[in-house]
Nucleic acid binder design. Structure first.
Length: 259
DNA sequence: AATTGCCCCAACCGCGTTCCG
DNA sequence: ACGGAACGCGGTTGGGGCAAT
């Protein structure tokens, strides 16, 4: 039987199970210690860093705090509608690969996106009659209730998926295209994503100008039907994005519009 | 003003992957 | 090639804030 945490979010004993290590909410003093240490010594070596930084925390906790909160590049505040739209699109493409999704949205962390998805977007999709997991319409309105109550846990599902399918196969199923015969690799997928070039400077200028740079990013993802989508995946280089966010997809379309 | 219930999100854990001796 | 350590990711939890009663 595990001892409950005193302050505790999460469950059970701390990962490092060392007596005397602090858990729970970070204080501003701890934040200062961590931030100044990382600025001085750089990221990495999380295991040993708490001691060297004078923190009574485990390395994991320090890493998480830095990554999700203290890092200078972390953008605080409300998720903009355009960012939301981008998250939806990327989730349809990538599934619950939060870190990959976060990697395409400057300033947002995987944890933040995951939280936003679980608290806002999945509910929003359900309301619209869309299965948040597959992005396909729910066949039976009662399915949503069944999904909530009788569905296996996410971890069970994840295990089941892992045992049966490659991510690409899962995506193929999600898209619902039985005839799809595309065996693209993670590299290709990554290449496709990389082709959606984002100028981070544009984002950093967000506060200085009144434009919403995310709009630029979103408009880099032209609306697609399933067939077009797969064409784009298979031919990642087929999409280019100019500085203004206009899209020339090499399929004879030029777009600067939203969905 | 007090209580209750709900929602959000920071922080936790377990596990898989990568690194390194 | 192997095993342990370190790291990174995704799922889950529950404290705290806020709205409703």
């Amino acid at each position: 039987m595990r001892e409950p945490l005193k302050t505790g979010r999460g469950r059970g004993t701390p990962c490092c199970s060392k007596v005397g290590l602090k858990t729970g909410q970070w204080t501003s003093e701890e934040d200062d210690l961590l931030a100044s240490y990382v600025r001085r010594e750089g990221e990495g070596k999380w295991r040993t860093m708490p001691k060297r930084a004078g923190l009574l925390r485990c390395g994991k906790s320090c890493r998480l705090r830095w990554m999700n909160y203290l890092r200078p590049s972390v953008k605080r505040g409300q998720i903009a509608p355009d960012e939301e739209d981008l998250i939806l699109r990327l989730h349809r493409l990538l599934g619950n690969r939060w870190s990959l999704i976060a990697g395409r949205i400057p300033g947002r962390t995987d944890n933040e996106i995951k939280n936003y998805w679980n608290t806002h977007l999945s509910k929003k999709l359900l309301k619209q009659g869309i299965d948040p997991r597959t992005h396909m319409p729910l066949l039976n309105p009662t399915c949503s209730n069944q999904t909530a109550s009788a569905a296996p846990s996410a971890r069970q599902e994840a295990v089941a998926v892992k045992e049966e399918d490659t991510p690409q196969q899962v995506m193929s199923k999600d898209i619902g295209d039985d005839d799809l015969d595309v065996n693209f690799s993670d590299d290709m997928l990554s290449g496709f994503l990389d082709s959606l070039v984002v100028d981070v400077d544009v984002f950093l200028r967000q506060d200085l100008t009144n434009i919403n740079p995310t709009e630029t990013l979103v408009s880099s993802l032209p609306p697609f039907e399933h067939d077009e989508f797969w064409e784009q995946v298979v031919h990642p280089s087929a999409i280019t994005l100019d500085v203004n966010g206009d899209v020339d997809d090499h399929f004879g379309r030029h777009s600067d519009s939203q969905i």
